Amino acid sequence: MTTNTALEEKFREVGGKRPYVQRLFGRIAGVYDLMNKLMSLGLDGYWRKRAARYLALATGQTGLDLGAGTADLSIAVINGSGPGTKMIGMDITPEMLDEGRRKLVRMGLQDRIELRVGDAEHIELPDNSVDGCCSAFTVRNLTNIKQGFSEMLRVVRPGGRVVCLEISHPPGKIFGTLFYLYFYKLAPLFGTVIGKAFEEYNYLPNSLTTFPKAPALKEIMEEAGWSDVRYYYLNGGIVAIHVGTKAE
């Protein structure tokens, strides 16, 4: 049985990919932030700051963070934006949002970032209701990636941006080999030793196996209706930031 077939079987056992992902992240919510820092060798904060910079919300604007988790990307956007900027963070996993709310209270940001349960493929917001949309390590967990980007396009106002930060496929052969060794072999080990969560941290690398490479993801975003789509590799292509604009 291949890894992908095994994953598909796990999805079927619980009624689909969405409930599987929801339960998985619910179980690791308490160690999620720590594991992010360990597995990215401390780079995850830098990646989010870069993504937040591309979103570039102006004073008084409102952004949407999909798959917001513990709110780190929302926080990065607020920290890099002018006064009066607000964020709505949505996630399908209540346990992750609970961790995020506690963090926001500690930072005094609870009045600027609102966290709510929500699905990136069926966004409960009106058309043209937010000034920009972002996500970090969320898109590869969607059941239908094009549907997700279509929904993002619907809720963003004309002229607004979408910014997608995702783990990618490093293009270089040597670096790519090292990356896969680390991501597929060592990362699940980290999860087992520190998070006592082998299945969860085995899923995370394997979710990349069928995830489109950066050029293909760009095409999906364009098919969904986004204009001027570009992507930027960071740290040799470990991650990529995809940016698109909604036509005026």
Rank of each mutant, 00 (worst) to 15 (best):
G67F: 02
R101I: 13
C134A: 15
V77M: 00
M107H: 06
D98S: 14
L97V: 15
C133P: 05
P83W: 12
G82M: 01
M90I: 15
D131L: 07
N128G: 01
E114I: 15
P83D: 02
G132W: 08
G132T: 04
G89P: 08
R112E: 10
R101P: 06
S135N: 08
L97Y: 01
L73C: 13
A71L: 09
R112Q: 10
P126F: 06
I78Q: 02
R101E: 15
C133I: 13
I92L: 12
D111G: 10
L73Y: 02
L97P: 11
L97C: 13
I75Q: 02
S74D: 04
K103H: 11
I123H: 03
E124V: 09
S81G: 06
D119F: 02
V130P: 00
E99N: 07
D127W: 06
I88P: 04
G69I: 15
G69W: 09
H122Q: 11
V117D: 06
E99K: 11
A120K: 04
Q110M: 13
C134I: 10
V117S: 13
L115N: 13
I113F: 06
P126I: 02
L109D: 00
V117Y: 08
L66W: 05
V77D: 10
I92D: 00
T85E: 14
R116C: 14
P94W: 03
T70M: 11
L66C: 15
R106N: 08
D131C: 06
L97T: 14
S129Q: 00
L125Q: 01
T70Q: 11
C133S: 11
S81D: 00
V77T: 07
G69S: 12
Q110H: 14
M107V: 02
D72K: 00
I78T: 01
S129A: 04
R102L: 14
I88E: 06
G84Q: 13
V105P: 00
G82W: 09
D131P: 03
T70D: 13
E99T: 04
N128Y: 06
A120Y: 02
L104S: 07
P126Y: 06
I75P: 08
V105N: 02
G108H: 12
I88Y: 06
P83Q: 09
V105A: 12
I75W: 05
H122R: 08
A71Q: 10
K103W: 11
G118V: 07
S81N: 00
P126A: 03
L97M: 14
